[in-house]
Design a protein around this nucleic acid. Structure first.
Lengths: 235, 235
DNA sequence: AAAAATCTTTACAGTTTCTTAACGCTCTGG
DNA sequence: CCAGAGCGTTAAGAAACTGTAAAGATTTTT
C-alpha cells in the first residue's frame, strides 16, 4: 500500500467535492459514497485505509454505518458533524468512531487529522499483540502489569492502571465518558464521572516528571479523553 | 510447501471476502468453508497449514470443530470471535485453539497473527528450561526441590515452596491473587486469600536474613504480588 | 497413639485506595 | 460583561485491603 485510500461519505455534493479535490491535491486516493448503504458496501469491498463519515445522511443513521463497519473492521473512522448534531457525535464515538470534526472545518484541520490518524496506523505494531506499549517516555508492560516513565517504574493503583491501559490500547482515539466509565466500573455505578476526573488528575500527575513533560492525555470538553502519540524527543 | 495454504471458515460472506482478498494480496493460497461440517471435511481432505475459524457458525459449534480437527491434527487454529468477553473464546483455547482475534479486527492485525503463527511453526524450538534459578542471594534448584539463601539452605513447607516457585518463574511480573490461589490451591477453595497473606508473611520472614536484606517480594495493593530482580550487591 | 509440623481461620490495627463534596478556574454564548 | 456549564484540584471521610499474631484444625512423622 503506497497510496492511502480514503472513503468519503458525504451526501452534500459541494462539500464532498471540496474534500475530494483537497485529498487529490495532497496525493491521496479516494472513493465516495452518498448514502449509508453504499458506504457500508464500499467499505467492505474496497477495504479503505480511512473512512471520513458525515453524520447527516439521508437514509441510514451515521451511527448505524459505524456499527456495521465495526462488526468486521477496525479501520479508522473520522466523523464529521454539524454543531447541532452534538449528541450524535457522542453516539458515534461510542459506536467506535476514532475522531471527529465539527462543521465548519478548515481544510488544514482535515488534513491534520488525517496525518495524525495515518501516523498512528503506521506506527501501530506491525507485530501481533505486543506485550509492551511505548509512547514517548512512557512504557506499559501489559503482561507484567507494570508501568514505567523514563525507565523508572511508577506505581499505579488498580483503577489508575486499568484507566491507563484503556487509554493506551486506544491511542489516538477519543473515548467518551460513558465508554470509559462502563469499561472500568461496569454498567452499575453511574455517578462515577466525578471519580473519573479525580483519577485523570492523579494519573496525569504521575505521568508528569518535569514541568515540560509531554501531555499524554487530552481533554475533550463535553465528550471525553484521548491519549495522544508523543514525539520521541523526550531526552 | 512454498505457499502457505489457509482454510477460512466464516459464514458471513462480506467478512469472508475481506479476509480472502487480503490473503490473496499477501500471496497466500486459501480455501473457504461456510459451515462447521464443511470445515472439518475440508480440513481433513486438504490438510491446510493454518485454519482461521469464526466461532459464530450456523450449524456446528466452533468449539466442536476444534475438537474434531484436534482429534487427528495439530494444525494451528486461529479463532475469530465476536465479543471480547466471549466465554466461547476461552473454551476454544481450552479445546486446542492456538490464538484468537476479536471482531472487529484490522487487516494488519490478522496478517500479524498469521506471521507469528507461521514463524512459530518453523522455529519450533524445544528449549530446555534451566533447572536452577538465581536472584540476588536467593537460589532455587527446581530439580532438587531445595532453596538456599546466601549459600545456606532454608527449609520451606510444601506450600511455601510452591508459592516461591510460582513467583520466581514469573520474576518481574505482577501475579494477581486469583492467579496465585488458583495455581496453588486449585479452583476449589475460595477463602484462601487469607491464607495467602499468612504464607507471604512467613515466606518473607524466611527470605530475610538481616534487617537490610533486599525485599524479594513486593505487594501491589488490590492486585497481587511480584518477585523483583535484585542487584547482585548482597555481599 | 503421641508428638510435631503444617495448614487454616479469626481478629485487629495500620495503611492504602476510593468516593464524595466543595471551590476556583476557563471557556462559551448571550 | 455576566452567567452557566464543564473541568481540574484538593481535602476528608468511608471503604477496602494488608500484615501480623495467635489459636484451632489437620496432616505427617515419630
Amino acid at each position: 500500500m503506497d497510496k492511502t485510500l480514503i472513503l468519503v461519505v458525504e451526501d452534500d455534493l459541494p462539500v464532498q467535492n471540496l474534500i475530494t479535490v483537497t485529498l487529490k491535491a495532497e496525493g491521496y486516493r479516494y472513493l465516495t459514497a452518498q448514502t449509508g448503504q453504499a458506504a457500508v458496501i464500499t467499505a467492505a469491498t474496497h477495504n479503505p485505509d480511512i473512512i471520513l463519515l458525515d453524520l447527516g445522511l439521508p437514509d441510514l443513521d451515521g451511527v448505524e454505518v459505524i456499527r456495521r463497519v465495526r462488526s468486521w473492521s477496525n479501520v479508522p473512522i473520522i466523523v464529521i458533524s454539524a454543531r447541532s448534531e452534538d449528541p450524535d457525535k457522542i453516539d458515534a464515538l461510542d459506536a467506535g468512531a476514532d475522531d471527529y470534526l465539527t462543521k465548519p472545518f478548515s481544510v488544514a484541520e482535515l488534513l491534520a487529522r488525517l496525518r495524525v490518524t495515518l501516523r498512528r496506523l503506521n506506527t501501530a505494531a506491525p507485530d501481533a499483540a505486543p506485550s509492551v506499549f511505548r509512547n514517548g517516555a512512557l512504557s506499559i508492560d501489559y503482561a507484567a502489569g507494570c508501568v514505567s516513565l523514563d525507565g523508572e517504574e511508577i506505581r499505579l493503583t488498580p483503577i489508575e492502571y486499568k484507566l491507563l491501559c484503556l487509554l493506551s490500547r486506544n491511542v489516538g482515539k477519543v473515548l467518551t465518558h460513558k465508554y470509559i466509565t462502563q469499561n472500568i466500573w461496569g454498567d452499575s455505578l453511574e455517578s462515577s464521572t466525578a471519580s473519573l476526573r479525580v483519577f485523570m488528575a492523579t494519573l496525569r500527575k504521575k505521568l508528569t516528571r518535569s514541568p515540560d513533560s509531554p501531555a499524554y492525555i487530552q481533554t475533550h470538553v463535553g465528550i471525553g479523553y484521548r491519549m495522544v502519540r508523543v514525539e520521541e524527543n523526550t531526552e
